[in-house]
């Protein structure tokens, strides 16, 4: 394989990426090949010493944020359709059933990540709510005392103490659980990304 063939192959493997990203990657590999030649290697062996275009593309794609890969995919569809939005819509509606299924699978996977994140958020919202309720009970207690209703006031103080202390006691395990959930969500997203990248790069 000579330099131009290598770069063409790499360009093809990266076609789903945004244009500047492709240019940058190609420039990097072209520079390496030129430097190898300058060092005394002939063109063929300079290229042969590199990772295969497939492997190189895979490394590049694996390091891209999921968003730009998906955007790149959309760009590809648009390019093929000549940028006509109606055609794009028709293509999506009329595309073979597996594409829809793939999309559905991706959405399901993504929603799991969202559920994990939502669980995490709800943990802390609940904790904040209980804490807030405790503080409100204190206000209530002050009000009861001021209108001359000590029994209810004492009850409110007790309720406030129970609520606030529950949050303080449970804070540590809660935070731990929260961290775990976040970690799980992040791992999950990375897994989905792998799925996408492999499907497009190989």
């Amino acid at each position: 394989m000579n330099k131009q063939e290598y770069l063409n192959e790499l360009k093809y493997r990266l076609k789903n990426l945004p244009e500047p990203e492709i240019e940058k990657s190609l420039a990097f590999y072209a520079e390496i090949i030129d430097d190898r030649i300058e060092e005394g290697a002939d063109e063929e062996s300079a290229v042969a010493g590199l990772a295969s275009p497939e492997a190189a593309a895979k490394e590049i794609l694996a390091d891209m944020p999921l968003g730009s890969i998906v955007r790149g995919g959309a760009k590809q569809v648009k390019k093929r359709m000549g940028g006509k939005p109606l055609l794009v819509v028709l293509a999506v509606i009329g595309s073979p059933i597996w594409l829809t299924l793939l999309l559905a699978a991706a959405i399901v996977l993504f929603s799991v990540a969202i559920v994990l994140a939502a669980l995490w958020a709800s943990l802390f919202i609940c904790a904040a709510a209980v804490f807030g309720a405790g503080l409100l009970c204190l206000v209530q207690a002050a009000a009861e005392f001021s209108v001359g209703n000590p029994p209810l006031g004492v009850f409110s103080v007790g309720a406030a103490l129970v609520l606030v202390s529950a949050v303080i006691l449970l804070w540590k395990p809660l935070a731990g659980l929260g961290r775990l959930l976040l970690k799980a969500a992040r791992l999950w997203i990375r897994k989905i990304k792998r799925l996408f990248v492999n499907r497009r790069a190989v």
Binding site: S25, F28, Y29, I32, L50, A51, A55, A56, E59, I60, A62, D63
Partner: peptide, 9 residues
Amino acid sequence: SESTLYPIL
């Protein structure tokens, strides 16, 4: 390798 270096850079 080059393919490892590029993402790192």
